[in-house]
Amino acid sequence: MAQRKPFRWHIAVFLAPAVLVYTAIMIVPLIGTLNLSLFNLTEAGERVFVGLRNFATLFGDPRWSESFWNALANNGWFFLVHMLVQNPVGVMLAALLSSPRLRMAAFYRTAIFIPTILSFVIVGFVWKLILSPIWGIAPGMLDAVGLKALFAPWLGREEYALTTLALISVWQFVGIPMMLIYAALLSIPDEVIEAAEMDGVTGWSQFRKIKLPLILPSIGIISILTFVGNFNAFDLIYVSQGALAGPNFSTDILGTFLYRTFFGFQLQLGDPHMGATIATAMFGIILVGVCVYLFAIQTRLRRYQF
């Protein structure tokens, strides 16, 4: 009979600290939250098990479902703007930065990353100032180039507010795709690039045929991180538009909807059970997205070892 392989202790040693801290501080409390979504209060204020009835309320009751679908649609648009603007710009900046013998590359990289290190408190405050029609740096600047007619109080209009906030968020976070792609581009060995140059593959076609396939796994990571980040987003909307996500809920995303429900606002009391229900729904949405990535996309990406 074949002998069993001895237990490999080093694997347990490598995994233990991360798994322990993560389980105790993150997973256990989160399970508590998911569990909460299955309970609700009776008229007498007793906590009873209600099964999936909270979800039926969230998706079926017009008072709840309208806000939910509105928040979900807004969140989808928020994500789309990031995918279409943030990630292509990030890849382009990284490609420019990694071009050989570029002077001041360190300066550019540092400068472009600076918005990412600012807190939402600062970002929300400063963009409100810049776009404010009263203090008015933006209208003043547009006036200087003769385009004053284009100015509108973007954050105050229902049709523009969400896109404006998405673009502010892109402005803040473009440094993240830039850095990850930059690191990936630098890890391409010089030999590969030199071989391409020997064969006369340079410039754009070198980027498309040699570098792009090599950085595709990083682009995959960035896309999924953007997805997760956007569907968890909350802070920027909260600091610039408040918990009500005005004007008229046009900037409401799942994070702000969750916050309002969980902690309450103005006249509405906080409802931990419905809050937990929304949190669970968000968890489901994100889970589906991540599974699509892990099983449909990541397994098809080819990895190269050097």
Partner: peptide, 23 residues
């Protein structure tokens, strides 16, 4: 195990705040 550890990327730890505070 990889999926288990990756779960935390998806869920904001803030959702568990009440339980964390109790701990």
């Amino acid at each position: 195990m990889g999926l288990y550890l990756a779960l935390g990327i998806m869920i904001p730890i803030r959702l568990g705040t009440v339980a964390i505070l109790q701990i």
